[in-house]
Amino acid sequence: MTRLIIDTDPGIDDTYALALACVSPDVDLVGVTTVFGNVGLANTTRNALRVLALCGREDVPVAAGADRPLVHPHGHRARQVHGEDGLSGMSDTLPRRTTGLAGTDAVSLMVRLLDESPEPVTIVAIGPLTNVALLLAAHPAVRSKIERLVIMGGGLDGGNVTAAAEFNIWSDPEAARRVLAEESVPTTLVTLDLTVRCAVDSTWLDRLAASGPLGDTLVKLSATYRSHYRLSLGYDGVVIHDAVAVAEAIRPGLLRTTGMPVEVDCGQGPARGMTIADRREHHTRDSPRRIDIALDANLDEVRAFLLSRLAG
Rank of each mutant, 00 (worst) to 15 (best):
A53P: 14
V62Y: 10
A199E: 07
L194G: 07
H82F: 06
L221C: 12
V244R: 06
I6E: 02
V244F: 04
L205E: 10
V190R: 02
H228E: 04
A165R: 01
R178M: 00
R50V: 03
G267A: 08
P213F: 15
A133P: 11
G267T: 02
D28I: 12
I240V: 15
D201Y: 01
L135C: 13
L192T: 03
T224L: 08
D14F: 04
I146M: 09
D242N: 15
V190H: 03
V196A: 08
A199R: 00
M274P: 12
A64Y: 07
G83H: 00
R197K: 15
R57K: 14
G65A: 07
Q80D: 02
T104G: 02
R207I: 10
V200I: 14
L41I: 15
D216C: 13
A249S: 15
S287G: 06
G267V: 05
V179Y: 05
R97K: 02
L192V: 05
S227E: 03
L54S: 11
L194P: 11
E263S: 11
G83R: 03
R46P: 01
E147P: 02
G103F: 00
G65C: 01
R46Q: 14
R279I: 09
G158I: 05
A245K: 12
A223W: 07
S222C: 11
H82M: 05
N160C: 02
A125M: 08
A181C: 11
V124L: 12
K145P: 01
V111E: 15
R230K: 09
R290N: 07
E174F: 02
L218I: 09
P186E: 07
T44I: 01
F167Y: 11
T104H: 00
